[in-house]
Amino acid sequence: MSEKEVKNLEAIFEARIARDEKIEPKDWMPEKYRQTHIRQISQHAHSEIVGMLPEGNWITRAPSLRRKAALLAKVQDEAGHGLYLYSATETLGISREELFDQLHSGKAKYSSIFNYPTITWADIGAIGWLVDGAAIINQVALCTTSFGPYARAMVRICKEESFHQRQGYEIMLTLCNGTPEQKAMAQDALNRWWWPSLMMFGPRDADSPHTEQSMKWKLKRKTNDELRQQFVDQTVPQADILGITVPDPDLKFNAETGHYDFGEIDWDEFWQVVKGHGPCNKERMEARVGAWERGSWVREAAMAYAEKQAKKKVAKAS
């Protein structure tokens, strides 16, 4: 293809994005658009799969049968989200095995929040309320993203996430209406999960290398800082209803802007966890790699069996 032809295709592509048309897998797209989407969608898929681990940690210890079943169903939903998102990524011409290799080798990232430990039952409530709450804010913005398979997956995921968030908040509410010991457990969970949740929106706009291009392609509709502010504004009144305190001495409603002002995030901690040195980065990767390696003989057996069955079918037909 000549340079002129590529320029022409690019112009058509940009015009389609500008008209809010969806880009589908078979459509022409710039290589950088493809690569950015593989990176972002797979990162999202990996986050779902790694995110199963901290919550899965409480399935056997959930305090009631109702909570146990709800938690199992929730973690299962995350596996389902991982499945749609890997499928959406595969439409861009990369295999699931390659994507797993990228995760297992550390080349691909996943949301850093899942590198924090779940040490009490209240953490399961806090994850639903705060982590899923933050995720929804990020994800609602993606339901109208330009790449069709990603946008459609997000519509479905958002519905389930909002259910998870209500469920998490309801766990917190039950704890806060319970004994002093239960309420203290809820406060302790908020103390530990608040700042990592704010970090989920990524670096400040000024330090976010991909924001400009992603906004242009409508892969992002709002900046990290805008979304973070939205999360704070939405969540602080919910903490007030619970009767627990957001661990930020600088948090204050600003009547002039109509938003909450909040303190500075510990960016050293953010980068430490992103670079692989958070409390559970190593454990999470060992769990993923371990499950994959222990399962290799099973996947091989399934392939071998399917081949044998196909041969039998052919032999029968001839």
Binding site: I49, G56, I59, A69, L72, A73, V75, Q76, Y86, R294
Partner: peptide, 29 residues
Amino acid sequence: LGELCGHGPNLETDIALTNIALDLFGQTR
């Protein structure tokens, strides 16, 4: 089966085994 959630040989079997666990807990209740 609940112990296995998130540790299956692939996503599809992970989901299926969790389904079975969910059925069993539903019956239990």
